[in-house]
Amino acid sequence: MLKKSFFVIVFVLIFLLSGCGVKTKKVKDPFISIKEQLDKLESYTATAIVELYNNKIDNKFAVVQFYKKGKFRLEVLKESGSPDKIIVYDGKRSYVYFAKVNQVFVAENTEEIPLYSMITSFIKNYINSGGEIEKREMDKFYLITVPILDKNIFMYKEQMAFSKEDLTPKELTIFDINNEIFSKITYKDYKYNPEINDKLFTKDSVTTLAGNLLDSPVIEIDTKEVYKYCGINPVMPVYLPQGFKLLNVLVNVNENNGVTFVYTSGGELIEIFETVVDQNEIVNEKGFLLSEGVYYKEKDNGEKEYTTMVNGMQVKITVTGDLNEEEILKVIKSLR
């Protein structure tokens, strides 16, 4: 009996001692993981809802953001969803398209550009903060507060809230020198290191919303490939208004493989869409008769659309800008 009790005690001691030797798995510090994600960020896309405060919300607007390896594109939208301004930085210079005046400017003065709303602006301040970093935890977020390098009385420090679920940026709050909220930016549809087409960061793209350039059913092709993709021999304008050049050729596989030729002068766009339709279908599109065989209507977003038939194809010409009717009629008459 004593011998049996002895072996039981020895067994229990061995079990307890072996249990003490098991190492508890260490949970990684979430703030270290956040820092690693920010260090490895090469590109991102997001929609930022920006609220500017002065005792109350004075102004609210949306900014669609694209960033890739030092280049960026910001599309500042009105409440209607139409662009107020589009900013493109190609790595060397910034270009700003102001929809109100329909002109492109080289950005010498960046005060009106909401760069402070960008995630990369926070990263820059975070990396170069010199150790002045506050970290704390809330129910749903990890919070990191850093001083703003180029601080002023309105933008003195900023606090980014990261989701506990996936450590993504969710909300940036900028405080003034009195610790009052100057701005609050909420990020939606954030994508980490996505593939982004480089053409979004070119001067020539600054007058067109990214959604129109990167629409998923649209394929960018060379002029010589039009027949291969569309099965049509396109008509091309012999005449173009001064300063206009061909920007790109797009095929929409969801719309009868129609082909669009995009011409730009830098501040204005002419889009010529061609597709094969029944001769009678043009009647449904006509708006009102502008001249023989040419119909005109103004779209809800202010764009002007001209529709006609050339060599059995329906041709729609959409104009963004202040080009006059006479110039567009010359373009239509020159289609060959």
Rank of each mutant, 00 (worst) to 15 (best):
K4Y: 14
F6Q: 10
I9C: 09
I9R: 03
V10C: 04
I14L: 10
L16S: 10
G19A: 07
C20S: 10
G21D: 09
G21T: 14
V22G: 02
K23L: 15
K26F: 13
V27P: 02
K28P: 08
P30N: 11
P30I: 10
P30L: 09
E36H: 09
K40T: 12
K40I: 06
L41M: 11
I49H: 04
E51G: 05
N55G: 11
K56L: 07
D58Y: 14
N59A: 12
V64N: 10
Q65T: 06
K68L: 11
G70N: 10
K71P: 03
F72W: 01
F72K: 07
L74Q: 10
L74G: 03
E75F: 04
E75A: 06
E75S: 08
S80T: 15
P83G: 08
D84N: 15
K85E: 07
I86Y: 04
A99W: 05
V101M: 08
E112Q: 14
L115N: 11
Y116N: 08
M118N: 00
F122D: 01
K124Y: 11
Y126S: 04
Y126L: 09
S129K: 05
S129N: 05
M138D: 13
T145M: 06
V146A: 12
P147G: 08
I153Q: 14
F154M: 12
F154A: 15
K157L: 05
F162V: 06
E165A: 14
E165P: 05
E171L: 12
E171F: 06
I174P: 04
I177C: 01
N179C: 00
E180F: 07
F182L: 01
I185H: 06
I185C: 03
D189A: 11
P194L: 06
P194M: 04
I196T: 05
T202M: 07
D204V: 08
D204A: 11
A210Y: 04
D215V: 00
D215M: 09
P217F: 02
E220C: 01
E220Y: 07
I221H: 02
E225D: 15
E225L: 07
Y229L: 01
Y229P: 00
G231V: 08
I232R: 12
I232V: 14
N233V: 15
M236K: 13
Y239P: 00
P241T: 10
Q242G: 13
G243H: 01
K245L: 05
K245E: 11
L246M: 04
V249I: 10
V251Y: 04
E255H: 11
V259T: 05
V262T: 14
T264Q: 03
T264Y: 02
T264K: 09
G266R: 03
G267T: 14
E268T: 10
E271D: 14
V276C: 09
D278G: 13
V283D: 01
N284M: 13
G287V: 03
F288N: 07
L290K: 03
E292C: 05
G293N: 12
G293E: 03
K297E: 00
E305K: 08
E305P: 01
T307S: 15
T307V: 15
M309P: 02
N311I: 00
Q314R: 12
I317K: 02
I317Y: 01
V319F: 08
D322Y: 13
E327N: 00
K330C: 01
K330V: 01
K330D: 01
I332L: 05
K333V: 06
